[in-house]
Computed example of a mutant assay.
Amino acid sequence: MLEIDGISKRFGPVQALQDVTFAVRPGEIFGFVGSNGAGKTTTMRIVLGVLEADAGEVRWKDAPIDADMRRRIGYMPEERGLYPKMKVGDQLEYLARLHGVEPAEARASVERWTTRLGVDARRGDEVQKLSLGNQQRVQLSAALVHDPEVLVLDEPFSGLDPTAVEVMNSVLRDKADSGVPVIFSSHQLDLVERLCDRVGIISGGRMVAVGTVAELRTDSTERFDVVGPPPAAWAHALPGVTVVSVEGTRTRVELTDGASDQDVLRAALAAGPVHEFRRYQPPLTDLYRDVVTSGAAA
């Protein structure tokens, strides 16, 4: 298990991270989300040893991560870290060798991953001649070519078309299924919700929520969708009930102060036929907004 335990980091007057703690389990895909400047990249750079934490510790299998272990991590930075004038195949083989892979195995790995990621025909091209999407595929190949024990990916889906997104989804799921912990950051919350086993939300350098999407929903405000009666009018007089939105004949209400969903249903039925009554399951986008907003208010 990859453990980030109590990490803090300051840059001059700016407290970039404050007691950041979470873990990524073997075989798990962990989505790390937050706004620009929230602390995602700083956390990842500390895991990789690019930055040193002021406090806290990063552990792998209960032991502090050292230089030898970091060679066994696959890292994909947000800023492309490839040599632009070097050919794709030569560069990937060189990077594999830097991680201790033998020459024949490195060449086989380059062939395997460029084929899997759809850039095998570009192995003889300079990186700078590739499209941004293909550069991103090569960057992921570079993170995988040495068969890492842990994957740390910073915005891996940036610039990818839908087909490439599905290919990368498949690759990350396969790596996780083989027991590799995978952590990636992304602003594409719909993708995070679909792909990740658990999610960590960071805001202002602090972890404000960690859990599955279902667990985050458990902590969210109780809301219901009612379809049928005249829009919203029936709900306004109910104590502890707030009308959140009205779209056509659909009214979304929020329950507070011990209000009962059965009271809502009875009031709606009294106003007219009810065609649909169900608990609203907020997407990760809504959960993220609510968690960050409540964290800022606290």
Rank of each mutant, 00 (worst) to 15 (best):
D120P: 10
I201Y: 09
R206W: 04
A209N: 01
P231G: 05
E79N: 14
R223Y: 07
D125S: 15
P148R: 09
L151P: 05
P77V: 02
M207W: 00
D161S: 10
E3W: 09
Q128E: 15
K40W: 05
G272L: 04
V226L: 02
S35P: 15
T163D: 14
L153E: 09
E247G: 11
L160M: 08
V167F: 10
A38P: 08
G49K: 01
P231F: 00
V145H: 07
V20H: 02
D177I: 02
H275Y: 14
T242R: 11
R25E: 14
R59E: 05
T249H: 11
R71L: 11
K40P: 08
Q91D: 10
V165W: 06
V14E: 15
G39H: 00
R112W: 04
A121G: 13
Q139N: 09
D190K: 14
G133Y: 08
I183G: 02
R278F: 13
T256F: 12
V20I: 10
V150I: 13
G81L: 05
Q18T: 14
G159Q: 03
G12R: 00
R72T: 11
D197W: 01
S245I: 00
D120Q: 13
V58W: 01
I46V: 02
L189T: 04
L130I: 04
F277A: 08
I46R: 05
M1Y: 04
S178H: 13
D62V: 12
V150E: 03
Q91T: 02
E3D: 12
V291N: 06
M86D: 08
K129R: 14
A214G: 06
S170C: 12
R72V: 09
L144N: 03
S203Y: 14
E276T: 14
F22H: 06
G248E: 03
V138H: 09
R289T: 15
K85Q: 15
F184E: 09
Y83R: 02
I4S: 00
R97K: 09
P13M: 10
V24D: 04
R72W: 04
G56H: 05
V264Q: 00
M1Q: 11
S131R: 03
V138M: 11
G12Q: 06
S141H: 05
M76T: 06
F184Q: 00
R217N: 06
A121M: 12
E52Q: 14
P156Y: 04
L284W: 10
T43E: 06
E105R: 15
L191E: 12
L287S: 06
V127C: 08
T43I: 08
E215R: 12
D286S: 13
D19H: 14
I202R: 00
G27T: 03
A63M: 12
S8N: 04
A298E: 14
K40Y: 01
D161F: 11
V208Q: 07
Q128A: 14
L160K: 02
D190C: 12
S294E: 15
Q135G: 07
F224P: 02
G159H: 04
T285Q: 14
